[in-house]
Write a protein that binds this DNA or RNA. Structure first.
Length: 290
DNA sequence: GCACAGGTAGATT
DNA sequence: AATCTACCTGTG
């Protein structure tokens, strides 16, 4: 149950505590919790703690876990081989003062590379819910159906496991109408072996089409899964927040979703999803108009 | 009591 | 093709 002592993450990415909090607890993922002076999170079979100490990142893992294994998991999860500084610099902030303000507020912001299956599950839970509620639902589902992790806590359940239990069991976690979508998606995935693997191997457009065939997955959730669970930085999820930002801060009143998507691709480019995350973070923080 | 929350799908016009 | 509307539950 115990964790190792804090260790420096060799060649870990650089960012401040505010940015770390935004990455781990800002709506990309719903499985991190802020403790007294660190964050604790779970993904796949991993459970780890992270904190900032004098501008470097430190981690602690359950004692059973080798440090090298923890570092490997972290490097994959935070996509450290991707140069987000360069990707950010390539965004049109020089001609876009709104984006510039957002970027300056969250220096070092990154897009996570989460397991696709978990990302799909979490965002199927997310419709018209606030982040704390989505987290509570995910935790309740994990506690009920997930495998035990190294510290004794629970992982999110596999889709196979979800397919085995009924919709009623899911409703017990306060999923509401989302329980039906999730159960139907679980049954669909059980009937279509390797469907998620196929999505990961497909072009972004094909992957989006495959995702949107799943019950309860529309354009927004599909784009969230592509962005946060498949490293497709061109995916640009338009939710109520982003819709308001584009409408008010960018003056695109009454534009249809399709038009906004075209604008996002044309204006923000191949890393539009990264721009989206800066804008989303800044709007939530009240730094730009929302 | 009631509007609203990181939407989607099906019905209606 | 564009605009309603129902769908669960928690929160302010």
């Amino acid at each position: 149950m115990a964790f190792t002592q804090w260790q420096t993450w060799p060649d870990g990415p650089k960012f401040n505590k505010r940015t770390l909090a935004e990455i781990l607890d800002g709506g990309q993922t719903f499985r991190w919790n802020e403790k007294t002076d660190f964050f604790e999170g779970r993904w796949g079979g991993n459970v780890l703690r992270l904190r900032i100490n004098k501008s470097s990142i430190e981690f602690a893992a359950p004692k059973e876990i080798e440090s090298a294994q923890a570092v490997e998991a972290l490097n994959h999860y935070l996509a450290t081989e991707s140069d987000f500084e360069a990707l950010t610099d390539a965004l049109p902030w020089r001609s876009d003062p709104i984006l510039k303000t957002a970027i300056e507020a969250f220096p070092g912001l990154r897009i996570l590379r989460q397991p696709l299956d978990e990302t799909l599950f979490c965002f199927l839970c997310s419709s018209t819910k606030q982040i704390p509620q989505i987290k509570a639902i995910c935790e309740a589902i994990a506690d009920d159906l997930g495998e035990t992790l190294a510290d004794g806590s629970k992982a999110l359940p596999s889709w196979r496991r979800i397919a085995e239990v009924g919709e009623t069991r899911l409703r017990a976690a306060k999923l509401g109408y989302r329980a039906k979508y999730i159960h139907q998606t679980a049954l669909f995935l059980a009937d279509h072996p390797n469907y998620l693997e196929k999505i990961e191997a497909s072009s972004t457009e094909d992957a989006r089409d495959l995702l949107m065939q799943l019950p309860g997955v529309g354009r927004k959730i599909a784009d969230c899964v592509l962005l946060f669970g498949a490293a497709r930085l061109e995916a640009f999820p338009i939710d109520t927040w982003v819709q308001k930002i584009l409408s008010r801060a960018y003056g695109l009143n009454d534009w249809k979703t399709g038009q906004l998507l075209e604008f996002a691709h044309a204006h923000f480019g191949t890393s539009a999803g990264l721009a989206q995350q800066y804008l989303f973070a800044a709007a939530r923080a009240g730094i730009i108009a929302k």
